[in-house]
């Protein structure tokens, strides 16, 4: 009996919005992640188009981070398929995903506390090679310096992460992600704790990256600052898809308003 209902569900899901490998640069089909008895992500399907900025929105605990941990290989998904650039990458380990051109920033900043901003960025530019002459002569640092300047840390190259203000930490996260030369960048909660002007300058940077051909997925639980930035949004709640569409369609959607209890949409 239970197998029947599951089969039915699966059938309805696939008829509703079947996602295939060529539906976008990143395509996720029926992704499911369970922790013990808890279903964190419940048969979620979506696709990300090349050179778009997609907002990935949901209240706290909706499963946003878990989804991206499954996509980037941090956790193996319980079920479902992930395609990146048309290739199946389900369960590929994180460093392989980075090499394939998918980078991410962390919501809880994870810089290397023992080295300077410049060296943090330089690390992500290094080749995955065991024996190399690179770095012996310090020639790496020119490119790393350019990235630091790009993300607005040009005057803090030799400071340690502990000396950076909150916005600086976020910029460092972006710098470290950009150091891996990604085609798709997952940005986790970029605007949390930023002031108005800071939100604007980070948004400008993300728009600039998109104009250069990068695809961006911006994850956030509130929509402040996000709606001006994104082309399209996906809203999830309790691990499954709630709404999908342009920023206007999302804000007008009654279910989305319900999920946010009428708040957080201003």
């Amino acid at each position: 009996m239970s197998t029947d209902t599951r089969a039915d569900e699966a059938a309805s899901a696939t008829t509703d919005n079947e996602v295939g490998p060529d539906d976008g640069i990143l395509a996720v089909e029926s992704l499911r992640k369970e922790f013990g008895g808890l279903v964190a992500v419940d048969d979620l399907s979506f696709a990300v188009q090349e050179e778009e900025i997609l907002g990935f929105i949901g209240p706290n605990g909706a499963g946003k981070s878990t989804t991206f941990n499954c996509v980037t290989g941090t956790y193996p998904p319980t079920d479902g398929t992930v395609w990146y650039k048309g290739e199946e990458v389900t369960g590929t380990p994180p460093h392989e995903m980075v090499k394939r051109g998918m980078a991410r920033t962390f919501q809880s900043f994870a810089p290397l506390e023992d080295r300077s901003v410049l060296k943090n960025v330089a690390l992500s530019m290094m080749d995955d090679k065991l024996v190399t002459m690179d770095g012996l002569l310090g020639e790496f640092h020119d490119e790393a310096r350019a990235i630091c300047e790009r993300v607005g840390l040009g005057d803090r190259l030799y400071q340690t992460p502990a000396e950076l203000p909150h916005a600086g930490m976020l910029r460092l996260e972006l710098g470290r992600a950009l150091g891996t030369d990604p085609d798709l960048l997952l940005v986790d909660e970029p605007f949390a704790g930023l002031s108005g002007p800071e939100v604007e300058s980070v948004s400008d940077l993300l728009l600039e990256l998109r104009d250069e051909g990068m695809t961006l997925v911006v994850v956030d639980h509130n929509m402040r600052g996000l709606l001006q930035l994104i082309d399209r949004a996906i809203v999830i709640n309790f691990g499954s898809l709630l709404a999908e569409g342009s920023p206007d369609e999302i804000t007008d959607n009654p279910e989305v308003q319900e999920a946010y209890l009428g708040g957080g949409l201003e």
Binding site: L123, M126, M133, D134, F140
Partner: peptide, 25 residues
């Protein structure tokens, strides 16, 4: 003193940061 050393000390500091840099820890 080459990049290999930086990567090894990065493992000591934070293994996730090493993976996030596209390096196989």
């Amino acid at each position: 003193r080459s990049n290999t050393g930086s990567i090894l000390t990065a493992i000591r500091e934070d293994e996730d940061a090493v993976s996030a840099a596209g390096l196989s820890k």
